[in-house]
């Protein structure tokens, strides 16, 4: 009747998650802070990929950026300064069913957590690492960060930072077993979303550096970048980050770059005349430690007891 089919499917319709279902408490970042845009992009990503909120975990350290988990409606672990990555790896280790995201700042990741950064990249466990890099310590009020430009005046270096900054992209590319290294800018939401989507789909540790504006302690460099988009260089490739033509047109300068070309990636990261955005490097077949850490996951209780008994017998006299 009424032209409707009468064979209604008996299965329960799949759950559908709307954007609101990923919204946690109200963000407390400063107005205009780049973190807001990234949050929106991540909520979109979750909605687009229909990630079950109970299967999704956001892990962070301490800093403005690390407030991220509170503003998502999912499981979250807002831990200690610098220690997000070991926690995320531990979560991942025995729970391959969970989607793990890490939100970290440049102090959190590249200074106090630097050892974990190097090793987590090498472990290459399946998760998305979002480095919200504002080139400064925001939460503790304007101290030099390892990514602050040389000469930048901060509360700890009022006469200007002494040293050249660490380049997070170059550093990550230098770590054996790095498998996904990308860069984007918070002020281009569609590119952020496209990059995070590729990161999420990548099987392994996806390192995404997001240049993030901090209007409270502004970085002249980023202001300039935003005003002069010609300084950005969009990396394009069939295996790279998929963006539609409208997004492509936002970038005056584009370059084909094959993400399997590590040397090329390093040369790009070294460029001083342009800031590349897109995928520097990808290697889907890099070793994944989370393939090892799930060992024995399905061991039954009876087998556990049998193993214990076998061990005790070995020590029996």
């Amino acid at each position: 009747m009424y032209g409707l089919k009468t064979d209604w499917p008996a299965e329960i319709p799949p759950r559908y998650f709307t954007l609101q279902e990923y919204e946690g408490s109200l963000p407390r970042w400063c107005p205009g802070c780049g973190d807001h845009g990234v949050l929106t992009a991540v909520q979109r990503l979750c909605r687009d990929e229909q990630l079950e909120p109970e299967k999704t975990v956001f892990v962070s350290g301490i800093g403005c950026a690390s407030r991220f988990p509170h503003y998502m409606k999912a499981y979250g672990f807002h831990g200690l300064h610098g220690r997000a990555l070991p926690v995320a790896c531990g979560i991942r280790a025995r729970r391959p069913d969970l989607h793990v995201f890490v939100a970290t700042g440049d102090g959190d990741c590249c200074s106090i957590g630097a050892a974990h950064w190097v090793h987590a990249v090498r472990y290459n466990m399946n998760m998305v690492l979002m480095l919200l890099d504002n080139n400064v310590y925001g939460l503790t009020k304007n101290q030099t960060s390892p990514t602050s430009l040389k000469g930048r005046k901060t509360n700890t270096h009022p006469r200007g930072a002494w040293l050249e900054p660490i380049d997070p992209i170059q550093t990550t590319l230098g770590i054996q077993n790095a498998s996904f290294v990308a860069q984007t800018v918070d002020w281009n939401p569609p590119h952020v979303l496209a990059t995070l989507k590729a990161a999420h789909r990548h099987p392994g540790m996806s390192f995404v550096r997001i240049l993030q504006r901090c209007p409270h302690y502004p970085n002249q460099d980023f202001v300039e970048l935003q005003n002069n988009p010609a300084k950005l260089l969009l990396l394009t490739h069939a295996d790279g980050i998929e963006v539609d033509d409208a997004v492509k047109r936002m970038f005056k300068n584009r370059q084909e770059h094959d993400p399997s070309d590590l040397d090329g990636a390093r040369r790009l990261a070294d460029r001083e005349d342009a800031v590349p955005v897109g995928l520097f490097y990808r290697n889907d077949s890099a070793d994944r430690y989370d393939r090892n850490t799930v060992e024995g996951l399905a061991t039954s209780r009876r087998d556990k007891i049998a193993a214990l008994e076998a061990e005790l017998s070995r020590y029996e006299i």
């Binding site: 831990g79 990555l85 070991p86 531990g90 979560i91 280790a93 974990h116 190097v118 061991t299």
Partner: peptide, 24 residues
């Protein structure tokens, strides 16, 4: 016995990893 031994990058990483696993 269905377990996994993780040799971490340092003792902080070691307990962080354990806490992550426990949280999960």
């Amino acid at each position: 016995a269905g377990g996994f031994l993780h040799q971490a990058e340092d003792e902080i990483g070691a307990i962080g990893f354990a806490l992550g696993a426990s949280y999960a």
